[in-house]
Design a protein around this nucleic acid. Structure first.
Lengths: 339, 339
DNA sequence: CTGTTAGCGCTTTCAG
DNA sequence: CTGAAAGCGCTAACAG
């Protein structure tokens, strides 16, 4: 049977505490004894205190949990979330456990949890709260009381893109967005349905843009959404929007990937920006795209800092941290064509 | 004080087993009683069995560990390792714990470990072995006995790139590689030093290329290495190689990033491929680069499958899994210029 | 510097 | 369907 701290102590005729100290408090015993213990332990193939037992005793593990979308691999395929994770990883000595939405947070052996961009009322949010685990939300949901939040002001952030369109004389503008609901839905979204959206982030971007358009006197701005953020879905969304509304002279997208879809759909159909202006959101490096850059990595850094404060019992600064974004003018917006 | 399984049982006047069963074996008690337990637990803010205690008892956690380079964020900045992680994540229901090299594997609460591309004799390798934790190595080290390995045959994989150079009449070829030693070293590497390299992967690629060159009768092929794989380091490596050996007509690189450095250095100096041919390795999508594509994601999938087999006590198929690679001819190799 | 004591919170036979 | 017993392996006072 494998050696344990107790068996090592017994074999050596000393107490468990001393063996424990050999690993955890080297200053609490003579170097000679410590060496003796360690070398005997090694000879017995004992690798040090069992981490399960240790964590039960100490109730901590030096591990941070990050809750991500159902399929972990999505997280690695999306540039924004990879950057976010890099930020989290970089700013702590903690190990990082990636928790798929499917796995209950209840079972995760972590000292604290960062929830990254999930629907309002997601189960794992409730779970983390009932476990009373230090918890920080990144991106969404945006309105959970008593939980520190880090993200951006999506509504304000997208405004400059909308304004660029308006300033260029566009009056017939459409919006192409990622899904607003955790239950899959594709197609046109009525303004009345926006309130019910449980994906706060997309809603905020759409509303931010609509606000600008409304202030400019535009009405009946069509909004199309797609469940997926990939090129195929985006292209199809662009098709639906532009086939139904051929009169549009500009499309505001809530992600760069969506803008890529518009560009793809327009290939061979309409010249960008001469015949159609396009804006994106994210700043993932689409050449020439007029977009808004957001600090994904920084989000991760701040989120990690916040959970660590919570875990280590340091006082919180503020409930909500909104990071700055930057409007990135490109060459995908041109003056509206004269009729 | 927070509720525990025992306190819930006591409050309800039933045994701990029954409460435990309510969570773990719903079929072992009446639905009515189960409901009663669960709802009382909820009212007491009890979130279910404490995972630390549970894991001590059961000795497992449904979590896979992945050991990566010292700084976790490197893993997220490198395309290959992100793809690898996507593969790991995708092919299991396990949560994924990323363990920085700094953190001892001894302390990680995981059911098994995948070690990704570390030096021979890395401490965590020994640690994982003494802990007797299910263990799989990806990429390197390549020669650890009794530990399942997944990777590619680097020496054979790079051969076609070397052969392409030879076939195009090149006789004065240099090699630009990533570092061979875990202790930082930059500059020229003598053939004799290759044997001592503890970074097996780079060594295998270099040796694979040298073999081809030797078979073609080439001698004294200069090899330059750089610690970092980023553009600045690669560009500087290219500079060192080509300034010292202006006679070279081709550079074989052991990574695409290194090839990018050669391209960068040559900008405005030498035309590629007319005046200098270049090859890479990895297939990260450098336009026009003649390179070798390797299955990073697949590595992750296989590695995950292997640890899971180990964890779940299923028999192993083979010790070493070598995945296929593919030579990707580009436009960066041209016939050697006539003298 | 060393040992004693007292759990951490849970699961799992096994017998009713 | 329920309960009693027996730890899982460790750490943290505290007293010597």
């Amino acid at each position: 049977m494998p050696a344990t701290l107790a068996s090592i102590a017994a074999d050596l005729g000393i107490s468990r505490t001393t063996v424990s100290n050999a690993y955890n408090h080297p200053d609490q015993l003579s170097p000679a004894l410590r060496r003796r213990i360690l070398s005997y332990a090694e000879s017995r193939g004992y690798a040090g205190p069992n981490p399960h037992a240790r964590s039960l005793r100490t109730q901590h593990t030096d591990t941070l949990g990050v809750v991500l979308t159902e399929h972990l691999s999505f997280a690695f395929e999306d540039r924004a979330s990879v950057d976010f994770l890099a930020g989290v990883a970089d700013s702590s000595e903690y190990a990082l456990t990636l928790i798929p939405t499917g796995v209950s947070v209840h079972d995760a052996i972590v000292d604290g949890v960062i929830v990254y961009s999930v629907p309002e009322n997601a189960q794992m949010l409730l779970d983390a709260k009932t476990r009373n685990l230090p918890l920080v939300i990144c991106d969404q949901p945006t309105n959970v009381p008593d939980v520190p939040f880090v993200g951006i002001d999506d509504a304000a952030a997208i405004a400059p893109a909308a304004e660029a369109l308006v300033a260029n004389g566009h009056r017939r503008i459409g919006i192409l967005a990622k899904r607003l609901f955790s239950t899959p839905t594709n197609g046109f979204v009525a303004p009345a349905d926006l309130d019910a959206a449980d994906l706060h982030l997309q809603r905020a971007r759409i509303c931010g843009a609509l606000e600008v358009f409304k202030a400019a006197g535009l009405r009946d701005v069509p909004v199309v959404t797609r469940d997926q953020n990939d090129l195929a879905a985006a292209t199809d969304g662009a098709r639906e929007l532009l086939e139904t509304h051929p009169e549009l002279t500009a499309v505001l997208c809530t992600t760069d990937s969506m803008a890529l879809g518009v560009i793809e759909y327009c290939r061979g159909r309409r010249a960008i920006p001469e015949e159609l202006s396009v804006t994106g959101f994210d700043g993932i490096g689409v050449p020439g795209l007029t977009t808004v850059e957001q600090p994904n990595r920084r989000k991760g850094e701040v989120a990690a800092m916040l959970v660590r404060s919570l875990i280590e019992g340091r006082p919180q600064r503020r409930e909500k941290t909104l990071l700055p974004t930057r409007f990135l003018p490109g060459t995908s917006v041109a003056p509206a064509p004269a009729d």
